[in-house]
């Protein structure tokens, strides 16, 4: 009984989310583009996430390198550390970790912001003042997330590699030029492009889920907290699911 109801609720929510997402494409195409609000959101979502993404990226590269080092040394292939770390960061760790941090920071803040606007009737107030709140609030935020996350991923990758370079130099001695030569010799387009493309989907998912959870918030402050929390949980899970799908696609296309 319990399980049966859970499944029913699960499919009902999946349906709601699909409908919410399809509204994005329908409404996004309609006139009166909210350009100013879109750029404001890009600034908030992109620029203001930079320090956090930069810090986590740096630590990730450094720690990964230091942890991998003993094994590589024992196999006598320590000169290949940059290649290994480079591929790991660019193909997988960079996009996924950045997307997860992004979900934690941006997904929750969108969920909480729209949630509190919903319960205090601000969304209704927008609608009665001749503004389509879905376009003004949701379309702008989802677009900003979709476009900003790939940029953040690239920056995070670059900072991670720099962290890794420092990590190599803690025990060994490698020149900056040599480190990046090995990294780029082992990276092709077939490594970079799929990772870049999937980060658009990660960004889209975080934006849509954050907005969906906020927009459908229940009355009361508890409802707002729940929206923020479930936005992070659900968008993190979806990031992994998209990652799983992406790896199948690149595999079928022979890009692995």
């Amino acid at each position: 009984m319990e399980l049966h109801q859970n499944w029913k609720a699960f499919f009902a929510e999946a349906g709601d989310i699909s409908r919410f997402t399809s509204r994005f494409f329908v409404q996004g195409a309609k006139p009166r583009q909210e350009v100013a609000e879109f750029f404001r959101q890009c600034f908030i979502i992109g620029y203001k996430s930079l320090p956090l993404i930069g810090l986590t990226g740096f630590i990730m590269g450094l720690v990964l390198t230091m942890q991998i080092r003993p094994t590589m040394v024992s196999y006598g292939v320590q000169s290949q550390i940059p290649a290994m770390v480079g591929i790991a960061i660019v193909r997988e760790i960079g996009p996924v970790i950045t997307a997860l941090i992004f979900a934690g920071k941006i997904g929750s803040s969108i969920g909480a912001e729209l949630g509190s606007m919903k319960v205090t009737e601000q969304i209704d107030a927008m609608e009665v003042s001749g503004t389509n709140p879905y376009k003004y609030l949701v379309v702008t935020r989802v677009l900003a997330c979709t476009l900003m996350l790939p940029v953040l991923v690239m920056l995070s990758d670059a900072i991670s590699l720099y962290g890794s370079y420092l990590g190599v130099n803690i025990r060994g001695r490698t020149s900056f030029a040599f480190f990046f030569k090995v990294v780029f010799n082992n990276l092709d387009f077939s490594d970079v492009i799929p990772a870049f493309l999937k980060s658009f989907f990660f960004g889209f998912a975080v934006g849509v889920i954050g907005c969906y959870k906020g927009y459908n918030s229940n009355k009361g402050t508890e409802g707002v907290g729940y929206s923020a929390n479930s936005a992070v949980v659900l968008s993190s899970v979806i990031v992994f699911i998209i990652d799983l799908i992406a790896v199948q696609i690149t595999d079928i296309l022979g890009l692995n």
Binding site: S116, T120, Q122, D124, A125
Partner: peptide, 8 residues
């Protein structure tokens, strides 16, 4: 609006 709905 009952809750004023000022944009905070």
């Amino acid at each position: 609006f009952q809750s004023n709905a000022l944009y905070d």
